[in-house]
Design a protein around this nucleic acid. Sequence first.
RNA 1: GGAGGCAUAGCUCAGUUGGUUAGAGCACUUGCUUCACAUGCAAGGGGUCACAGGUUCGAGUCCUGUUGUCUCCACCA
Length: 877
Amino acid sequence: MKKELPKTYAPKEFEDRIYQTWCEKGYFMPSADKSKPAFSVVIPPPNVTGQLHMGHALDETLQDILVRSKRMQGYSTLWVPGTDHAGIATQIKVEESLRVNEGLTRYDLGREAFLERVWDWKNKFGSRIISQLKKLGTSCDWSRERFTMDEGCSKAVREVFVNLYNKGLIYRGYRIINWCPNCRTALSDAEVEYSEQAGHFWHVRYPIKGTDQFLTIATTRPETMLGDTAVAVHPDDERYKDLVGKTLILPLVNREIPIVADEYVEKDFGTGCVKITPAHDPNDFEVGKRHDLPIIRIMNDDATISKDGGVYAGLDRYEARKQIVADLEKGGFLVKVEEYSHNVGTCYRCKTTVEPLTSDQWFVKMEPLAAPALEVVKNGSVKFEPERFSKTYINWMENVHDWCISRQLWWGHRIPAFYCDACGEMVVSKTDVHTCPKCNAPMRQEEDVLDTWFSSALWPFSTMGWPEDTEDLRRYYPTSVLVTGYDIIFFWVARMIFSAMEHTGEKPFDTVFIHGLVRDAQGRKMSKSLGNGIDPLEVIDEYGADALRFALASGNSPGNDMRFSTEKIEAARNFANKLWNASRFVLMNMDEETPYGLPAVEELATEDKWILSRFQKLTKEVGSNLDKFELGVALNAIYDFSWDVFCDWYIELTKSRLYDKTSKSAKNAVRVLGYILVETLKLLHPYMPFITEEIYQALPHDEESIMISRFPVYDEALLFPEEEENMERVIETIRAIRTRRAEMNVLPSRKTKLFIVTKHSEAFRAAEGFFIKLAGASEVVFTDAFKDEGAVGIVTSSATVYIPLADMIDLDKEKERLAKELEKTEGEISRIEKKLGNEGFVAKAPAAVVDGERAKLAKYRETEKKLHEELKKLENL
RNA sequence: GGAGGCAUAGCUCAGUUGGUUAGAGCACUUGCUUCACAUGCAAGGGGUCACAGGUUCGAGUCCUGUUGUCUCCACCA
């Protein structure tokens, strides 16, 4: 059984090998055992041609921790992997490569040829992100890998589209939408990001027809005046009341436009007069509808002025702005220009300023869909973790507008609407329609494709085979947890919830586990343009996937951003290294016959029972924190136990027993060492899968792989409160001795005699070897009353230890220290006395708390007494 | 304009439903070639828990307000 571990921890030597073994053994697939409870997760599909970044690394690490721990806890786990076609993002990349390499645009190629290129691109890069996920150690069931544009997902998309259309929940209409002139497509509200930008506020006067008077309007976008079809004032505004109904002459254009009254206008903002451009402003669009104003669209899809812009036609929007301002000034229409800072909408993909404009688009009617999606969160059926994000969600869902789902792209799910140019018939159908059912003329399919998020919204059920009634759906849907960042609650989470409610009649998941962003060491967002991103693959290459995962999981608290730095990775690697070496130590002390498992309880030493007891407490803490999604807290507990309790204390405590490896005591010690180590590795495995497996395989173990071993559970039979307490007393005393020796500058090599006076003499006598090995003792004498005045006393709550005074002891320093400690103890005593003297406390606090305080008081009083004695002794010298 | 987060050691952060003397990592100081590990061991210094009130026997923890800071939503042209 016994194996060797290489002397140095070199994750590169085993991570890939282990991952391959797991795959070959089929450990990532759900259990065939139908009696096991189900735990399922669908991966937030990364962009098919994307590259793994820290955000992914965090997201996948958290999911893998959940999935691996559930798997070990006896669940049949299913983690569905896959990728997203990412309409705009992918199309932009391919267009860019076309432009750079061949000097072509997509229009040069035409739709079909261009799409072939995108598929080539997808086939070339689609596996890259998947292999990067594997590097991380993710335990997805790769046999179920999906793609949002594969056959099944496409079928689900059509099914959903047609269902919604037939219910009147999808409609086509001429509305004002957000347009990205660079991507040349419509965007949904969620895809527009607002940023504060410096601009100008131009005050322009519009002549009132038939008079020599003017009305002054203020605008930040003078070029849109070409499309003005009215000027609005507030109905109650005394200044302009008489002018409502009169006609203005639009400067430069010389078109006649009415003055209308509308409550949308803020009297106190600007001049109180608003130019109304229904084709290029969402609010103006609404005003236009109310007053039945014409809509004049003066901009083309590429943001140049259209033919309706008269002499300005063909100019870019910013060129036109310049020209128009100049012309207004020339014509004497410009009153003044103010500096002005305002929010400008930009495209979330390319950051180009979006242009609101009117256009024929497809929309999802949100109101009826939002209601059940709200209900399911409000009644707690879908829980957000942390809870506060449900508020974000509810607020958004309650104010949601209709969703613009058509995109003027080529890469995506083409909308299944078919038009007959001959008779004007339109058919929406799950299957392609080639001839018009009315007139038999050929039909053409809608050019537009669907918003990428339309297909991602179906991901939890489309990946499980919906609309077919599949076994996966029955067993694993609704899914258990969805893990994602707070930045895509609106894009994705919200849409999954209402889509699932509408199409499956069920919620898509029980819990949404939200995490924050990974920031750089200075707290800045990692971004390509800043160049401050840390590449997870480079980290894996240098430190190993386990170190990366540890660094991401430790100190990560739900919903909060985290900082990532090389110091953190180094700390993680150091921990891995520590485990590695501790394991080497344990292995070194084993022989071929060392079995897995504990010796009989009667054969356990005090320190064995102590570590077993401590381990039970760890198990409980880890389990409850995993349940609460406090993954970082659970990991910290494992870290502290492994390093402080196991390595720094337990291993050291066993060393004296291990000198004679053939002894029964040594054999038992080694078994406990091996057992605690293996069980700790199990707790750690979800976080650091590779190193734990590698060590597990080298040690005596219970299962074929740690991945499928049983997660430790709290076992009261392995709690030994008495031994635990005794061991803590000894440890406390050893620490106190070490502290004193350090204070007195006693060299570690200098051994001293120890006299120990204690009520717990049995426990201390049993620990004699520990004082010799760990507290620098040459000899330990147990006595009831120590008389020698020439010694320094060390007082702990359970013992007083005397070290004969040697010449290296600084008397004054020692007195000072004792006095300080006495003062501290007296402070504590008076604090507790005050507390106990407080009738309210004694009467109202729980009895256990009051008793605890009383016990503490007694302990402190005893300590105080001993300290007094010590001080007196020193003063007599 | 609305909502929310954060504020604890020099730095980064923990701190469960209020209950010992507020913790960790990194950094710092001191001492250690102790035969698993210097990617280490031992010991130490360092905090008015942003500020002001309140609730309570008891507040880092709950409530109110203030200040600072970050984020999201809305979009007054």
